[in-house]
Design a protein around this nucleic acid. Structure first.
Length: 241
DNA sequence: GCATTAACACGTA
DNA sequence: TACGTGTTAATGC
């Protein structure tokens, strides 16, 4: 099914196409740019469709793009010395990532893999630096982005130390509903219970049980192939006190 | 106990 | 038809 033997980077480039108007309209930071900046960004941005299981970034590969999720769901992970993969976060629609690596012109430090068929946009390193060097709005966006994500990773440490499975599911869900980092999600997060299990580190059956409990508590509504958030604040604070 | 895997029936896209 | 969901049974730490 996903027997991609050749390195993904080259294939992705050749498969890329230009953005549609709708896709461009959904990219939050584009709207903040000035006209010439936006023109430059738009002419550089490429879009590619990846299938489930496909790798966008591999650890050690030089960073060539700053990526954003148009549609679908990605997973950021690393392989430990023992070969056991550790998942750091899921990236739903509207999420942009890789700026830290691109800024430093280094190699990717994580694997980014599609949990399901997804549409991903990419801005080249050159265009990224061009924007960083001249655009105040772009710098504001990047600063906010780094700031919000720092908060997320602090929160993720809390989640890891939480023993309660329901709480872990609740907090992980709340993270995916972050309106600043993932503006493309809206009220309905498209994610299967199996995918959520991969992200949280629980079995599908246990995730299902947790979702039922959260639904009974009025925090979410479980839908076919997705989850609707009803009370983000309480979801975020689930498990404390 | 609690979570996991395996297996199944059922409903939906 | 293929996939996602809800559930139960057997197994492991």
């Amino acid at each position: 099914m996903n027997a991609t033997r050749t390195p993904p980077s080259q294939r992705l480039v050749t498969r890329a196409r230009a953005l549609t108007v709708d896709e461009a309209a959904g990219i939050a930071w584009l709207g903040a740019l000035q006209h010439d900046e936006r023109e430059r960004a738009l002419s550089d941005l490429k879009v590619v469709q990846v299938s489930a299981g496909e790798l966008l970034c591999r650890v050690g590969r030089p960073a060539t793009y700053w990526f954003g999720v148009i549609d679908g769901l990605l997973k950021m992970s690393n392989d430990t010395a023992m070969g056991i993969p550790i998942t750091f976060t899921g990236i739903p629609p509207g999420g942009w990532f890789g700026e830290g690596t691109v800024i430093k012109r280094e190699a990717y430090r994580y694997n980014i893999q599609a949990l399901r068929k997804s549409v991903v946009a990419g801005l080249s390193v050159e265009a990224f630096h061009w924007l960083i060097e001249r655009s105040i709005p772009f710098n504001r966006f990047i600063t906010q982005q780094l700031n919000e994500r720092l908060g997320q990773f602090i929160g993720a440490r809390e989640i890891d130390r939480m023993t309660d499975a329901d709480g872990r599911v609740a907090r992980s869900l709340a993270a995916l509903f972050h309106p600043v980092l993932y503006p493309g999600v809206g009220g309905l997060l498209r994610i299967t219970q199996l995918e959520l299990g991969y992200l949280v580190g629980l079995s599908r059956q246990r995730v299902n049980e947790a979702l039922q409990a959260l639904q009974a508590a009025g925090l979410i509504a479980v839908e076919y192939g997705g989850v609707r958030v009803l009370d983000l604040e309480r979801l975020r604070g689930f498990g404390q006190s």
